[in-house]
């Protein structure tokens, strides 16, 4: 699963720590998601998309080859 969290974070001028705090997760979790090492739950993905005011599939992209 690929994602554009880093891009949206930059657009909203949010650090990893600030995003983690808003989402109620650790900074390491945001880092792991950004690096593609951890796929977030549907709830967390929805919360991130809602924060950036976009749809989930604008932030998270299913890598069909990988899946």
């Amino acid at each position: 699963m690929k994602n554009k969290i880093k891009v949206y974070r930059a657009m909203h001028d949010l650090s990893q720590e600030a995003l983690a705090q808003k989402m109620g997760v650790t900074r390491q979790t945001i880092l792991a998601i950004e690096h593609g090492k951890y796929d977030p739950s549907l709830i967390l993905a929805a919360k991130i998309a809602k924060l950036f005011n976009v749809r989930i599939d604008d932030v998270f992209l299913l890598d069909t080859l990988e899946e």
């Binding site: 983690a20 997760v25 650790t26 979790t29 792991a32 739950s41 967390l44």
Partner: peptide, 11 residues
């Protein structure tokens, strides 16, 4: 004050 457990740490 800080989160030390979330869905990733639970997994």
């Amino acid at each position: 004050d800080e989160v030390i457990e979330d869905e990733r740490t639970q997994k």
